[in-house]
Design a protein around this nucleic acid. Sequence first.
DNA 1: ACGAGAAGGTTGACGTCTCCACCTCCTCCT
DNA 2: AGGAGGAGGTGGAGACGTCAACCTTCTCGT
Lengths: 154, 154
Amino acid sequence: MDMEPRWLTPVEERAWRGMLRMHDLLVSEAGRVMQSEYGLSGADYPVLAELSRVPGDRLRILELTKVLGWEKSRVSHQLARMIKRGLLAREECVEDGRGAYVMITPAGRAAIEAAAPRHVEDVRRLLFDHLTPGQVVMLAEISETVIGKISPDR
Amino acid sequence: MDMEPRWLTPVEERAWRGMLRMHDLLVSEAGRVMQSEYGLSGADYPVLAELSRVPGDRLRILELTKVLGWEKSRVSHQLARMIKRGLLAREECVEDGRGAYVMITPAGRAAIEAAAPRHVEDVRRLLFDHLTPGQVVMLAEISETVIGKISPDR
DNA sequence: ACGAGAAGGTTGACGTCTCCACCTCCTCCT
DNA sequence: AGGAGGAGGTGGAGACGTCAACCTTCTCGT
């Protein structure tokens, strides 16, 4: 016979639904601004952010996949769209014939440099302005704990 | 002249990226199981959950939109897909000629009753098993604070 | 050497989400 | 009464994400 499942406690229910809802609100709000004010989607931003911070402005696609924590197919599709828009450029890889580099273009750099200050400001306005310093630390710790336990890496 | 923006502090950066990453991991893991084991997508679940818990098994679409916190177009598309699969049924609304009800079908109820225990178990396994009771409370409070401040409602 | 299998990446199909235009019906002002 | 504007809901276009199949190139054991 079936065991009755251990349903979530009320506070667990609040934490779970709350986390989902908070995430959606934050991402959609921040994304809406970036899209309408700077022409960048929510998916464009992290790609440009990673590429703009590495020396040489370029990364092996697999490296990018890892730092983003995305599936390789997702990265491939996203890069294709961004290359079509001129934000990125593909470069072939001499060391490994299977591989490829992707590089941020001047247009891509200009786009993220324009958007970044507003994006940071939005994250503050939407999230950190409402939390105590202790809550910020706690949120970081909770996230990192969970990521460490369930991340498919390693 | 431009002010240098107030960049995120290191712990804020960790909290922000961590939250995004944690969310993606949790949702994709839980969703993968639901899809492959029970044929329900991550989007199907909350719809069925809400409808299965209200008296009469039916809701005005606008009500559903509000409890889910989704945009109305998103709801409309999602309902259309689920109706096509036989999980839900549309009913016309007598009180208001513009409106409509959506109702969970026996197939829909069977689907969520099959999936729910495993879903709860997954949420535990992925999230709550790794957190202290204090962290769970804190996560609920953080979420609710942020939602309360930025939610478009009211 | 060479073949098997793995690694790096792409692609197509399909489900999902947003934006926007639109339709119908209701409300409320005058 | 009769519009005007709003509310409830739909639908198409296009961006996004996943899955699975696939291609090419590399690696490594024998």
